[in-house]
Design a protein around this nucleic acid. Structure first.
Lengths: 207, 207
DNA sequence: TAGCAATTTGACCGTTCGGTCAATCCGGGC
DNA sequence: GCCCGGATTGACCGAACGGTCAAATTGCTA
């Protein structure tokens, strides 16, 4: 049996991708050079172009891993059994958990959405995911208008993701770490409180 | 009387700053070169360094104008007469109006918060503004915890700003322009609906 | 041990970056 | 007409960028 040569090969490519992940998330795509990535991964710069065709390609690989994990987390939470409201709460919990574990992802997503150059990637990965979320929300808020799924999608997403994109500044405004367990739990209870209030009012037929 | 030579002088520096404003907001700080800015302003590149000490200084001037306008808009809306709830609604309207008129500002703020290199600027300009907003919210939600001003600040800010940072992607997910008057009005009604629901529940002493 | 392919390296390329500087332009007071 | 100071320009600099390539290294198989 030929021994797998995969382990060392994958280890190197993974180390490069992990280094790129950290750097891209911290200061953005343009502010990171391939030399920075290679240095952090402890390899020669040319090796980056051996394992990845270009800097942009490396960025795509970093993003795809996040997008796929994000999609799986939300889908498995929402597709299980339970009432629509229970599934909505579970999906929001999954979103919060995913963001807490991948705090830098929020920054990457915002950069992606804001930068027109990356819109093809957004259309390919992010837009379908969001169309799916909006469809899931329409199960609990079927009517159109100001209380409908279109606006609720932005609101629910913002309730979660905005907390993490604001985190670096909240750490300066507050005296506590916004990504620590106590504050994350406070945020979670806050979001669920709002979601229940909104769904109650929608069921009442108000908006 | 000596004639003011200010008009042409200010006009040139303003044209450079306006060009920088547009470009920074569209693709971010790093992706814009001083040559791009000079070309768009229709002046020589060296002239940028005559009117501004560096590219970073030019970026600060662009930001300061936004920060100051943002601060004035919110303060004048909140400091007028009325019940705390009325003033809160007015402040949110002012925030929405300001964002609609300066849609690119949302992107700049997110970039500022995410980039550790710019944290001194955030501490100087953005953090005091947000401390002030959080204090204003504490007038309508005095208690701490998951329904307290700390979480409500993130939520109210996110309800507004996230709509504009998401706008480029919403334009792709929806079939309508999210920054057009009809959708902006729908968002406004949506946000006010939520704010009233939350404040009702807080007055009821629920959270 | 020889050989082969995958992996890794250092040196190099053309381009663009932010920033500098001496020279020129230009309008208003003498 | 002349000059003077602010405004403007083109030419230039060193550094860093993404990317390439031939050579060297490594690890497996025969």
């Amino acid at each position: 049996m030929p021994k797998k040569k995969a382990p060392p090969k994958e280890a190197t490519a993974d180390r490069i991708r992990d280094a790129a992940d950290e750097l891209f998330c911290h200061v953005g795509y343009d502010a990171v050079s391939v030399r920075d990535i290679a240095d952090r991964a402890g390899v020669n710069k040319a090796l980056v172009f051996y394992h990845f065709t270009s800097k942009a390609d490396l960025f795509e690989r970093v993003l795809e891993r996040y997008y796929e994990a994000h999609r799986r987390a939300l889908a498995s939470a929402f597709e299980a059994e339970g009432s629509p409201r229970e599934r909505m709460h579970r999906m929001i919990d999954a979103y919060l958990d995913f963001m807490a574990e991948n705090a830098r992802y929020a920054v990457l997503v915002q950069q992606q959405i804001s930068n027109p150059e990356t819109h093809p990637l957004v259309e390919k990965n992010l837009a379908p995911l969001y169309r799916w979320i909006e469809h899931a929300i329409s199960e609990v808020a079927p009517h159109a208008g100001p209380g409908g799924p279109r606006q609720l999608f932005v609101t629910f997403s913002g309730l979660v993701i905005n907390y993490f994109t604001y985190a670096p500044m909240l750490a300066r405004v507050w005296d506590r770490d916004p990504l620590g367990a106590p504050m994350l739990e406070e945020r979670r209870r806050h979001v669920h409180w709002i979601v229940d209030l909104l769904l109650d009012d929608i069921e009442r037929g108000a908006p």
